[in-house]
Amino acid sequence: MKTTVNGLISEIGHNERAKYQLETEKLLSQINPHFLHNTLNTVQWVARAGGQEEIDRIVTLLVQVLQYNMGKNSLIVNVGQELEALRHYIELQSYRYEDELTFSIDVEPGTESVAMPRFLLQPLVENAIYHGQSEEGGEIRVVVERQPDAPGMLTLRVTDNGPGMNEETLAGLLEDEGASRGGMGIGLKYVKRLLESYYGSGDLLRIRSAPGEGTTLSVHIPIRSEVELYDQSAGR
């Protein structure tokens, strides 16, 4: 009995330390974005005071992207909100890849109000930016449309005209936990986890590519209400 009691006391102590560590890490996760946001606001103020309009615009876009990705807003948004944030991200990237990449976004009318998890499209576009560059100039196309043969399904598709990938490289994409080189995303593995959480299957993300043929990333999701998505996530 003495051994059992000592074991329980030790376990309680361990749990309390783990709880304290978790609370500390949670606090730090709140402090770091707050510090970053304040620093960016300072840079923006200095840029405006010095008449540096381009720097001002870049910082403004970066703040908007970070607020959307790391903000306290709902984890469920609609297609229109996701695309607005994506346009900010694309404009920000265009400053870096001015003569190397062109972007287009085609949205089927009436799909802007469809509910979806936040921060689903940016990792797909970031992957295309990294893998879709070519000597002739990269083209990245984003398409949002209902599936013609399944009106209850929505397709989010990102296509690039880059060099394409072999099967080994494709397999590696889904194992990469981190961001694409030089980017600010968190990888396609995150997208699969997001789809698993809200729709029950990570296989809703599909990748089609071959050397010399570019790459297409497609997400096929059922059209559901915001309440249904929350209920699906809460039940997992």
Rank of each mutant, 00 (worst) to 15 (best):
R87Q: 15
E126P: 00
E84W: 03
E98A: 14
V125E: 02
R118W: 01
F103T: 02
N127M: 11
Y97M: 09
I129N: 05
V143G: 05
L120M: 14
A85P: 01
I105K: 05
L124S: 03
E135L: 14
E84L: 09
Y97A: 07
L124Q: 03
V114A: 12
H131F: 10
V107L: 02
S134H: 13
T102H: 12
V142H: 01
E112I: 07
M116Y: 11
N127D: 14
N127Q: 13
E84N: 10
E139C: 09
Q93N: 14
I129Y: 08
L83V: 15
V125Y: 00
E108R: 08
P117N: 01
V144T: 15
Q122S: 07
E139G: 10
E136T: 09
L101D: 10
E145W: 08
I105S: 00
F119A: 04
L121R: 02
I129A: 08
I140M: 02
I129M: 15
L120A: 09
A115N: 12
E136G: 10
L124E: 04
Q133E: 12
E100H: 04
I140Q: 01
G132E: 01
H88K: 07
E98D: 14
T111Y: 03
S104P: 06
G80L: 09
L86M: 07
G137A: 10
S94D: 12
V144S: 13
Y89M: 11
I129F: 13
V143T: 15
F119P: 00
G137K: 09
Y89S: 13
M116L: 15
L124M: 12
E82V: 01
T111V: 14
I105M: 02
S134K: 06
G110R: 07
P123C: 12
Y130S: 14
E98M: 13
L83Q: 06
R141W: 05
G137D: 10
P117G: 03
L86K: 04
L92V: 02
L86E: 00
H88T: 05
G137M: 08
L121D: 00
V107I: 11
G132L: 03
I129L: 14
